[in-house]
Design a protein around this nucleic acid. Structure first.
Length: 1109
RNA sequence: GGGCCUGUAGCUCAGUCGGUUAGAGCACUCCUCUGAUAAGGGAGUGGUCAGUGGUUCGAGUCCACUCAGGCCCA
């Protein structure tokens, strides 16, 4: 028999119980085993950065990932279930620096790179453990490592990385040093999540980079890069992203560049970065912009005409000229006294150059050019052969040759520079200027621009191949394709180097003697090529500092060559995973089976230029093929107030807190019911809505079923009755199979949202129509064919719904399944049909034969009639409990035709629902309604075209009643239409005219979409008595409930009432007794110990007493 | 400055192929139902479909432009 079910469930506690159940029964491992011979569905996980606990925004994506894994598994597919952790790169370094209280790279070097790198590994392992636990809590079924195992490795890697340990693996124990076990995580012999710091991941990137080098795409470039002075590293174009810009206020400095050979005359130049003035080389003007020569006091200035408002005080325009007229003029720079300026030849170079990009939106129309301090400046300097002066070292300190600035930081240098300019008399004015300025995306420091050597992959050829590959992929939503192509069209060469410590060791060995460089393709090649330092490196993972020890011989000059100290861009790490995790280097057959991924998904802001991009780049280089077939993107998770979540704004919700306050089924449904391309507003209000409108009704339907099935000891397949589906049964089964088909179709198309749009109305139909209308079938005392059919139908619906919902809300469906299916399937004969977990079951097949479209349409009409009938009753202010004599129903012809005639059973249902003694369908609603005739635009529009408005007007002028009669009788309508070119005789076919009814003014009539219902509001004494009797029943029922009686308790009821009420009770005695399970119903004083109530029924006092027998 | 997306009720959002009177949830007001329901049902209040112009017999829907917001790029 079914187990009793609490009507007020604690979903969160239940989720924890289910987690225990899954763990205890090894439910996930069993699923993998069950599907091991199935067809393959390949998923590649976009790695989550294992650097902090995961947030509720991760929950969104992980819900999709789990949903589709479960769906395909239920369809019989095997999948790889491999989660990924992103491990290397600046973001981890920054957090470790914070942990250790470091402020600069020098602190790291003093601490020791070796220990620092281990600290980074330790942090990653620690947070991988945390994220693993959180993911499990979400119900995300993956091949997870034991979090305690990861924590143990984290401890050991700090204590003694060379300790030899033995750990269990899927194919037997593995013995190695702690460092190497960590380096082998996620590989076939250890299983579990992949970690991008793994040996395989790193060496696979080496292979990729070597391929790029062989094709001549890898190069060292000198460029001016955005640079973070705190992190002391360049920031690539990929990284200056959403949070890469901030609104900042800087001094907007206007200053004089005195012109040589023109005494008293100066260019007016404007900048927001005073420190770059130290390295000024030229001044640029727009060739076609109009410039003016103005006198102010005894000075003469040049600036563009459109920026004259920058001048302070009166001025006189002396002359106008085009920018090209200024070309070649020479001037004295603001810092020509600095040795660095002189050494670089700055003073000799100072002149006016032309640049098309100069505008007048800000400044003076004359742009100060410092090729060592800005990317565009650098390009321009190259074009004009100007020297580039680089004033800053890695940490943003002025280098030698910059006088009073040397040895000081660029941060906060503006004040000293402005003072210096003031002393020299060059400063014209200073204003606050607010603009979007790039900042370091990890530490928030303002970026500067530095002239540096970095390593790049050229996009010249690659971008077009990548675009071809991109077009072969299905992007959901579709605009993803355009986004990705747009990025590919515009992106610069890919900067892959970073002057840091923790990350991919770029496999580039550059000869200091002759400048030649070699790229090493893997660990085997390195061993062969090594001429020194292999013994130092051997046994270590390919990270700094160990790999730095290895030297090779320069093939060009024979010199001993070291690796460049740079580490790699972290998107290399994530981009290689469609090769590294699929054994590309070691088991090509396996790789072929699983590549490309059928599906990937990530939040799309950002990923077009990051993970999607790097996956595409690497697959294009290595195989020139798409690494994934479908890319599903979703938007951004915001707080419920529509703003980004921030701790300081009070709208932040931690994952763990959300999980244990909302419950993760609620969270998961909330995620799935979101249109993915729209930002998700996440919060407790919305969660409560989901709980109340979806999860609770689902649970209530289940509670209802179990409650009565237990009373009746009903079991599936039991009873020995035939099934005879009544109308409601056939209807709900039609709906069920319709919905199963729809959900299957939507999930096949990776449209979880579309699936929820089908499921939510179905649940509503089930609870608010099928169950509500079927209640009496479960209540009645006979155990007959009809009752059995009702149970069987509801059982089929609930168990099927369980399966269809299982991928979305895996916990509550498991709880339901265990009770509905497992608890009654202990007999061996049923075992094979009842796997141990709902997640082991196969996806239900929709039965097209069950989907009776006609019935669905007729039920819609019936429900509409009910709805209109309710509205009619409502307008007369008559309670539904009060029976009425009759209702008149009129259904317009068009509606009847569309739906078909309603069967007797349906009319009975409507009659019962409206609580009327008689239901009369009227053929002519003339007494109920007035008519309105309208042209059928869809037919007449195309027929008459531009002549249509006149036809419409002519029709409107007719007597609606007369037209309606003709149309109703199937006769054409003749019109005389006044067109611009004279009168036109027109004949309209009946179907070309639409007849609508509107209820006549007055009480108790309502009308909607062709359906009109009128109710007879005259109350006879008999009807009144029946209404009162029903009131009494309800009061007794309430009393039973308050007294805590069981559903099937028999009772004794006594009452005290007078007059009309007493008569009504007398007249309806048997009815009241039967409804309330009263074996005795009599007038009298309540006995001592009875539960009692004092009521007023329609103004009459009523005293009740009840007791169990 | 360029690309992509969005703009519909107080809030959050649906709205199919251009076609009759633009819908839902939340919130608010009133009513109602209830032995599955901490629920449910009905009614009411609430709309310049961002704006302008165009195409069309007909535009929330298609086109152009403008405005506002978001994302991406410069």
């Amino acid at each position: 028999m079914f187990q009793p079910v609490p009507s007020k469930p604690d979903f969160v506690r239940q989720e924890h119980e289910i987690l225990d159940f899954w763990k205890r029964t090894r439910a996930f491992q069993k699923l993998v085993e069950l599907r091991k011979d199935g067809p393959r569905w390949s998923f590649i996980d976009g790695p989550i950065t294992a650097n902090n606990p995961m947030g509720v925004h991760h929950g969104w994506g992980r819900t999709y990932k789990d949903l589709y894994h479960r769906f395909w598994a239920m369809k019989g597919y095997q999948t790889r279930y491999q989660n990924g952790f992103d491990c290397q790169g600046l973001w981890v370094e920054v957090e470790v620096e914070k942990e250790l209280g470091f402020r600069s790279k020098r602190d790291i070097e003093n601490y020791g790179i070796e220990r620092f790198v281990r600290k980074c590994k330790e942090r990653v392992l620690r947070f991988a453990a945390v994220q693993t636990e959180q993911s499990i809590r979400l119900g995300y079924w993956m091949d997870w490592n034991d979090p305690e195992f990861l924590r143990d490795l984290a401890r050991r890697i700090m204590e003694n990385p060379q300790e030899v340990i033995t750990v269990p693996g899927p194919h037997g124990p593995v013995t190695d040093t702690v460092e190497q076990i960590v380096g082998r995580l996620g590989l076939p012999e250890l299983g579990g999540s992949y970690f991008t710091f793994s040996n395989e991941n790193n060496y696979m990137i080496w292979t990729f980079l070597k391929r790029c080098w062989e094709r001549g795409w890898l190069y060292k470039g000198t460029d001016v890069m955005p640079w973070c002075p705190r992190c002391a590293t360049g920031i690539s174009q990929h990284e200056i992203v959403t949070e890469g810009y901030q609104e900042l206020t800087h001094p907007g400095v206007t200053l004089r560049f005195p012109l040589r050979g023109r005494p008293g005359e100066s260019l007016l130049v404007w900048t927001t970065t005073p420190w770059t003035l130290t390295s000024n080389v030229a001044a640029a003007v727009g060739p076609d912009l109009t410039y003016v020569k103005v006198r102010q006091g005894d000075e003469v200035f040049y600036l563009s005409k459109g920026t004259l408002s920058i001048l302070r005080g009166p001025y006189q325009v002396l002359e106008e000229m085009k920018g090209r007229a200024l070309e070649g003029w020479t001037y004295d720079g603001p810092f020509d006294e600095l040795p660095a300026q002189r050494a670089a030849g700055g003073p000799e170079a100072h002149r006016v150059i032309l640049w098309d990009e100069v505008g007048e939106a800000e400044g003076t129309g004359i742009v100060h050019i410092a090729p060592g301090c800005g990317a565009e400046d650098f390009a321009l300097g190259k074009q004009y052969g100007l020297p580039a002066i680089a004033p800053l070292d890695e940490e943003g300190t002025f280098v030698d040759g910059f006088g009073f600035l040397t040895g000081t930081s660029v941060v906060g240098s503006a004040r000293r520079i402005l003072e210096n300019l003031q002393e020299k008399g060059l400063l014209y004015r200073v204003d606050n200027y607010t603009h979007r300025y790039p900042v370091c995306w990890r530490c928030g420091s303002e970026l500067v621009f530095r002239l540096v050597d970095e390593w790049f992959i050229s996009m010249d050829e690659l971008r077009y191949d990548m675009m071809d590959v991109t077009r072969q992929i299905r992007w959901i939503p579709e605009f993803g394709l355009e986004r990705e192509l747009d990025w590919l069209r515009n992106m610069h060469d890919w900067m892959i180097s970073k002057k840091r410590y923790w990350g991919l060791a770029l496999p580039i060995w550059e000869c200091k003697e002759c400048g030649h460089f070699e790229v090493i393709g893997d660990e085997h090649e390195l061993r062969e090529r090594a001429v020194a330092g292999w013994d130092v490196f051997e046994g270590h993972t390919p990270h700094r500092p160990w790999v730095d020890a290895v030297r090779i011989a320069c093939p060009k000059c024979g010199a001993e060559v070291s690796r460049i100290p740079d580490v790699g861009n972290p998107w290399l790490d994530a981009g290689i995973v469609s090769f590294s995790t699929l054994r590309y280097r070691t088991d090509r057959e396996y790789w072929r089976q699983w590549y490309p991924a059928d599906f990937i998904t990530e939040s799309f802001p950002g990923q077009f230029r990051n993970w999607f991009y790097s996956l595409l780049a690497m697959a294009t280089v290595l195989e020139k093929s798409p690494p994934f077939k479908v890319c599903f993107g979703y938007a951004t998770l915001l707080g419920e107030d529509g703003r980004e979540m921030h701790k300081s704004w009070g709208n932040m919700i931690e994952f763990n807190e959300a999980a244990d306050r909302m419950g993760v089924d609620v969270m998961r449904w909330l995620y799935c019911r979101q249109k993915p391309e729209a930002d998700l507003l996440f919060g407790y209000g919305k969660a409560d809505e989901v709980r109340r409108q979806f999860l609770l009704p689902l649970w209530n339907a289940y509670v209802f079923f179990v409650t009565y099935a237990r009373l009746d000891e009903w079991m599936p397949g039991s009873a020995g009755f035939n099934l005879r589906y009544n109308l409601l049964d056939r209807w709900i089964r039609a709906r069920l199979h319709q919905v199963v088909a729809k959900v299957t179709e939507r999930l096949d198309d990776y449209d979880a949202y579309g699936a929820t749009l089908a499921l939510e109305p179905f649940l509503d139909d089930l609870t608010n129509w099928y169950i509500r209308r079927s209640r009496r079938r479960f209540w009645k005392s006979e155990h007959d064919e009809d009752k059995n059919t009702a149970y069987a139908t509801l059982y089929e619906v609930l168990t099927t719904l369980c399966k269809v919902l299982a991928p979305f809300i895996p916990f509550v469906t498991e709880a339901m399944y265990q009770n509905l299916v497992r608890s009654v399937a202990q007999a061996d004969s049923l075992r094979h049909e009842a796997p141990e977990s709902v997640h082991h079951t196969l996806w239900p097949q929709a039965d097209p034969a069950a989907v009776d479209e006609g019935l669905l349409a007729r039920m819609d009409l019936a429900r509409q009639i009910v709805s209109v009938g309710h509205a009619a009753r409502n307008s007369a202010n008559i309670k539904l409990r009060q029976p009425l004599a009759r209702a008149l129903v009129y259904v317009a012809q068009a509606e009847s035709l569309r739906h078909g005639a309603l069967e007797e059973e349906l009319w009975a249902l409507i009659q019962d629902e409206l609580n009327v003694k008689e239901l009369v369908q009227v053929a002519d609603a003339a007494d109920l309604v007035t008519y309105q005739v309208l042209p059928n635009n869809q037919l007449l529009g195309p027929r008459f075209g531009a002549r249509f408005p006149a036809v419409r007007a002519a029709l409107a002028a007719q007597d609606p009643m007369a037209v309606a009669r003709r149309v109703r009788a199937g006769l054409p309508v003749h019109l005389t239409v006044a067109q611009a070119d004279g009168l036109e005789e027109v004949e309209l076919a009946p179907e070309e005219v639409l007849v609508q009814e509107k209820p006549k003014e007055g009480l108790a009539v309502a009308s909607e979409r062709g359906v009109t219902v009128a109710v007879d509001v005259v109350l006879t004494p008999e009807l009144r008595a029946e209404g009162l009797a029903r009131e009494v029943v309800r009061r007794v029922q309430n009393l039973r409930k308050e007294a805590g009686f069981e559903l099937d308790d028999r009772i004794v009821t006594v009452y005290q009432a007078e007059g009309e009420l007493a008569q009504a009770i007398g007249a309806w005695r048997e009815y009241i007794a039967a409804e309330t399970l009263s074996v005795e119903l009599r007038a009298g004083e309540p006995e001592p110990g009875m539960a009692t109530a004092e009521e007023r029924v329609d103004g009459h006092p009523l005293r009740l007493g009840v007791r169990r027998i």
